[in-house]
Design a protein around this nucleic acid. Structure first.
Lengths: 211, 211, 211, 211
DNA sequence: AATGAATGAGTTTTCATTCAT
DNA sequence: CATGAATGAAAACTCATTCAT
């Protein structure tokens, strides 16, 4: 059920001992993320990153064994940020009734995808297959969360709650990413949110044990 | 409604009307597609492509202005192939009742995504942003098709048929692509097809004018 | 009895098809050998070699997979040249009586070591352990030759002819190389040749079955 | 008679008279020697040396002006060690008769070459031409010693005692080093020691004034 | 004295692309 | 049209060395 997972370990290098080093790492990662988001993967050469970070190329390699390690670190931080946004937008959802909870979920997932969508896509394009799980981690987490939420509502009477969670989350995620890529402005259209709610509620209804 | 779309034109070179040239183009495109699918974007250098095609690098540039043009052509053919598979799997769907039609649709979309999924992903990773619409064309076409199909069934009484089509198609597509990438073997699981049907039918029911 | 020999194969690249390519290879190899001999291993960067050869760096890598492959090729040619000189200087040795033959041999080995001694040493310094056998090949060949020559003179009555050959050749070679490195001008000293003859004849006499 | 010898001076930094500094120097030198011997010249970067020595890179440069200075110091110590082994193995040789003395000498030279042969070779490969005399110093000393020993035995009646010493020592040294590099295990073969004795005694006999 | 973060010139190597034959 | 030798800008990465703390 799990993915192949022969991911070769990401080679980090010197974990900074002094606080100065930590600041440098941040500067580098942010510079790289910016270039990636604004100019795309091809522009994010290690030299360009170092230059924009205001750091020498040697310094970059003090902290990252190679370009891929830098990309992975960006991915990790990006996922963490998305998760933070999601968690924030999801606060207090437990007390809500189903329709309200679904609205919250939709809003939360959309909000989390608004975090640097260009970076998100650039990471998808530049990470090696071995490391794509770094960004997949976000959706994996969301799936777990939704799975749990569905389990907590037995009144939904789902035939296969876990599968339903998977289908919902992946479907929703794909929909949002495709829309961001092809029609970014449309993400603000309230009609879309309504349609997504309809999709979720409908899917839940259609996934009942009896159906 | 559409994306920014300042796509720089794809420079193709002499369109070979003669059969000899056509054959050469085919050989090149197939060689490139194979490398892309089997070894990934990084391995698909123009020299490697020419070598595998059994053609000199000069000949490659006789037919393609640059590497990107070659990638775009591969994308076009890949999309055409997916569409062909889709069309084949969809034959006779018009006469079916809704549940049967939905099953057909699910099967058809899944089938079309089985066409070189590795190539599909490689294209996603290697095409420049300007040219991603080449592969997006597939889903655009499916959306149009589904939009039409929904319009032909007024008894569904949809509040926003076009939007529902969009949501369904993009959601389904994203779900399938994510699953292929992360759990490829799961695509064969009949439970998944059932869940997808539930999602579609549920979404249609949940998108009624009254809901 | 043989060396470990897990030598990783030398990656050559395109063997030139056109004669132009062969000429290019020659130019590159000669440029590299010159830099190596005159300025030492550190100066023989691939860029410096390409520049001196009047060729672009890309061309160098068309013919040599990496720097090491170039070094190995230089080594091969150097050894071939040494062997050619040796063979030339050894012509007609078979008919001579022992003292005359020994003189010839000494002169021949000395002469072969006069072929680019600086290059010889630079190769010793720059070749990876895996590839040192490339230049060792010369002495291996000389050992074989001398072994055969000793075998052809049973009147020498050697207790261990093969070992004697080994000792003689390696001793002689080391003596010559050390002398070249530390007192190059001394190689012209006739007294040295006389001393080497004494060493050889003495060693042969001292290695008799009875001794 | 000597080599060109325009050796640029080895810049050492503060000679640490205090024991703390001396200990640090020792640690650094030993770390470097170990890396050199085990992993070869390429692995012996200054940073790697400092790391293995458990010292900061800054400290390394406190004691050595540059990498070359460190290498030279390693060379000096290595030579000292070889000489110590040689001296130890040679103790009491003066009282022996010729054959016994020769056996002693052979054993002693072999023993001294067993001191870190990998390091010996690594030094040969990494020292700049200007500093090769650092390790050549060993053989220079041996030559002096043998020259003296031969002078002390006028009964040998040598035509050119000094030259004979040179030829013997360099030949022997080259033979041993070549054998170590190409067939290390053979150094333990008693037959080789016998052959070397034959070579020495034979050479002495063949180098008589009358010969 | 010791530290270790930072430097950046310099190295190897790749690969899309051109053009003389 | 086809060939393939040649190009060279540019990429990733290394490592000896410096210097502020």
């Amino acid at each position: 059920m799990a993915a192949p997972a022969r991911k070769k370990p990401v080679k980090r290098r010197r974990s900074p001992i002094q606080s100065r080093g930590q600041a440098t790492v941040d500067v580098i990662v942010e510079a790289a993320a910016q270039i990636l988001a604004r100019q795309g993967p091809a522009a994010a050469t290690t030299n360009a990153v170092a230059a924009r970070a205001g750091v020498s190329i040697g310094t970059l390699y003090q902290y990252f064994a190679d370009r891929e390690a830098l990309l992975v670190e960006i991915g990790r931080r990006h996922v963490a940020e998305m998760q933070a946004v999601l968690a924030g937008a999801l606060a207090g959802i437990d007390g809500l009734d189903l329709p309200a909870a679904v609205d919250r979920l939709v809003a939360a997932i959309v909000a989390s995808h608004r975090v640097s969508p260009r970076l998100h896509q650039a990471l998808h394009q530049s990470l090696a297959r071995d490391h794509l799980d770094t960004i997949d981690a976000f959706e994996v987490a969301v799936e777990a969360m939704v799975r749990q939420a569905l389990a907590a509502r037995p009144e939904l009477d789902l035939a296969a709650p876990e599968l339903t969670a998977t289908v919902l989350v992946r479907g929703l995620g794909g929909l949002i990413r495709t829309t961001i890529r092809r029609e970014p402005e449309r993400l603000d259209d309230p009609a879309l949110a309504i349609a997504m709610r309809a999709m979720i509620l409908g899917t839940l209804a259609g996934s009942r044990r009896g159906a």
